[in-house]
Amino acid sequence: MNKGRNFLKLGLATCLAFVSESLLYSQEDYVSEDDLFADDGEYEDQPSVPDPIRGFNRAMFNFNDFFYLNILKPVSKGYRAVMPDDAEKGISNFFDNVNYPIRFAGNVLQFKFREAGQETGKFLVNTTVGMGGFFKISDDFDMFNTPPEDIGQAFGAWGMGHGFYIVLPFLGPTTLRDGIGRIGDNYAHPIPEPWTLVDESEYRISLQALDIVNDSPNLLNVYESLKGSAIDPYESVKDAYIQRRAKEVAQ
């Protein structure tokens, strides 16, 4: 009889242990709605980037929107239809490789000498073994894996603020800081002026156009997806740009 009672007690204790464990689990191990975003600095409200030329920017945004969707998109669609995938990928790799001086300068200006070395190694491998950069051999080696940097990012890492928001015709969103950085990028880049390695201006323009058209399908898809779900597409794209740059600077 006693044996039976002890067995009963043991069984009850086991059951209670299960019940109490699940109760404990549900009371302590979940996040309340109030705390969900509170314990993450990333969700703290950042001061807005000033937009003193909002009227001009909105007009440029509408102009670019028309240009992207009615001119660039059909052109890039046609280009994609005739261009074999491998060639498209190769061209994208080539332009990415050519951007090396910008990434190198961005790293050096942030005193990231190890990363600048990685970029140099990547450039050398892709240019030589990768046949002028058309094949991205460096993707097969973790040692070359480093986030891309530019001069605007270096300014950000120095603690320079955005200044104010600007929407450039054709080029899209930027800020005063990144716009100045972009001028610096042009000085480091081998294709555009002033220190270009391509003598003929027609070739220069063709190469830059090819770079834009070749890259645009991916960018246009992200742009369209962001715009489609936005309440105010202008504000949505502005915030997306600021968020991305903040992350790139923090890297």
Partner: peptide
């Protein structure tokens, strides 16, 4: 996040852009 109702998605990042923060800015 593990919420009272179980594991729930509370934000989606598209190419590194937080949709929740993006909407918050638009609402503001």
């Amino acid at each position: 996040a593990r919420m009272k109702s179980g594991w729930q998605v509370y934000d989606i990042l598209v190419e590194g852009v937080s949709m929740v923060s993006n909407y918050r800015k638009q609402f503001q």
